Simulated scan of single mutants.
Amino acid sequence: MTSRLILISAATSEALREARFDDGSPVDAPGLRAARTAAGAGAVPAAGRVWISPTARCRQTAEALGLQGGSEVDELGSLDVGRWRGATLAEVSTKEPEAVARWLSDPESAPHDGESVRAFCDRVAERLDAAAGFDGRTVAVVEPEVVRAVVVRALGAPEQAFWRVDVQPLTVTELSGRAGRWNLRAGRPLA
């Protein structure tokens, strides 16, 4: 049995353009156009299952891509950044430089009173483990940090590598494998 997991990173939003921690902002107009163009070009693969991160941006991206009947999956939700939600990285870095430095260097740190990178990677890995049990293709529309966590766990890399994975909007990261051993193909543009 071969499992295939196709992760599509969500389209752009104002928060993403401003380097602002997720605040529930919707996909912006250019992001919607790009997603609809990809859907019109037939770039979205067919799947037996569709999973959607429970954020407005991911739901809107999935809809624009024509992915109907998808299930919102809580384990694929955004990294909980607690009190930093809605602030830009520059704002938080100015107010709490030591906390930001600790958060970026220590995967167990959660100075924002949210979720640590390690806890987040553990949560996402639960869904990755579930995907390994499905035969066929699963397409998931997710936030970039979910792709980072999947890449870290699929490769068996330390969580410190989380911040070294760059994920662009509307790109595809594909995993295929058997018995939880994944092969990875990362960063291909959707369109």
Score class of each variant (00 low, 15 high):
Ser105Cys: 04
Gly70Gln: 07
Val142Glu: 06
Leu184Ile: 07
Glu18Phe: 01
Gly24Lys: 10
Pro26Ile: 03
Arg83Pro: 09
Arg57Pro: 02
Arg153Asn: 10
His112Met: 13
Leu170Asn: 02
Arg49Glu: 01
Val167Cys: 08
Trp163Ala: 01
Val73Glu: 09
Thr37Ala: 14
Val73Gly: 07
Ser71Leu: 12
Glu98Leu: 08
Arg57Tyr: 03
Phe134Lys: 12
Glu96Trp: 05
Trp163Cys: 03
Ala38Gly: 08
Leu5Arg: 12
Ala15Thr: 13
Pro97Tyr: 04
Thr88Ala: 07
Ala15Val: 06
Ser176Gln: 07
Trp51Tyr: 01
Ala11Asp: 11
Ala87Val: 07
Leu175Ala: 00
Ala87Tyr: 15
Arg123Asp: 00
Trp163Arg: 06
Val141Met: 07
Ala99Arg: 05
Thr2Gln: 14
Ser25Pro: 13
Gly180Tyr: 10
Asp129His: 14
Thr55Ala: 07
Thr171Glu: 08
Glu145Ser: 14
Leu104Val: 14
Arg57Glu: 03
Ala39Lys: 05
Ala62Gln: 02
Gly77Asp: 13
Ala161Tyr: 10
Glu115Asp: 09
Leu67Lys: 07
Gly42Ile: 03
Arg123Cys: 04
Glu145Gly: 15
Leu5Cys: 08
Thr94Glu: 13
Arg127Asn: 03
Ala132Pro: 10
Pro169His: 11
Glu115Pro: 04
Leu76Ala: 04
Arg153Met: 05
Arg118Thr: 11
Glu14Arg: 14
Pro111Met: 00
Val50Trp: 01
Asp106Ser: 05
Gly136Asn: 12
Pro158Phe: 00
Val150Gln: 03
Gly77Ser: 12
Leu128Cys: 08
Ala10Ser: 15
Glu96Arg: 09
Ala131Gln: 09
Leu76Cys: 00
Gln60Lys: 07
Cys121Thr: 14
Gly48Val: 08
Val73Tyr: 10
Ala186Val: 11
Pro97His: 00
Ser176Met: 00
Thr12Gly: 14
Glu72Met: 11
Glu145Lys: 08
Val139Ser: 02
Ala41Ile: 01
Ser78Ala: 13
Asp28Val: 08
Gly69Asp: 12
Gly180Ser: 10
Glu98Lys: 00
Ala47Lys: 01
Arg185Met: 03
Leu89Glu: 09
Leu65Val: 02
Leu170Met: 07
Trp163Asn: 01
Gly114Tyr: 03
Leu89Lys: 05
Gly31Ala: 10
Val150Cys: 00
Ala35Lys: 11
Phe21Tyr: 11
Ala41Val: 01
Met1Trp: 09
Ala15Phe: 01
Gly114Gln: 11
Asp166Cys: 12
Arg127Tyr: 04
Pro97Leu: 01
Arg153Thr: 13
Ala47Cys: 02
Ser25Asn: 14
Asp135Pro: 13
Ala29Ser: 14
Arg188His: 12
Leu79Val: 04
Pro97Ala: 00
Glu63Val: 00
Arg17Cys: 09
Glu63Asn: 07
Gly177Tyr: 04
Val146Glu: 01
Ala154Trp: 09
Arg127Ala: 15
Ala29Leu: 15
Val73Asp: 11
Gly77Leu: 07
Pro169Tyr: 04
Ala149Glu: 02
Leu76Ser: 03
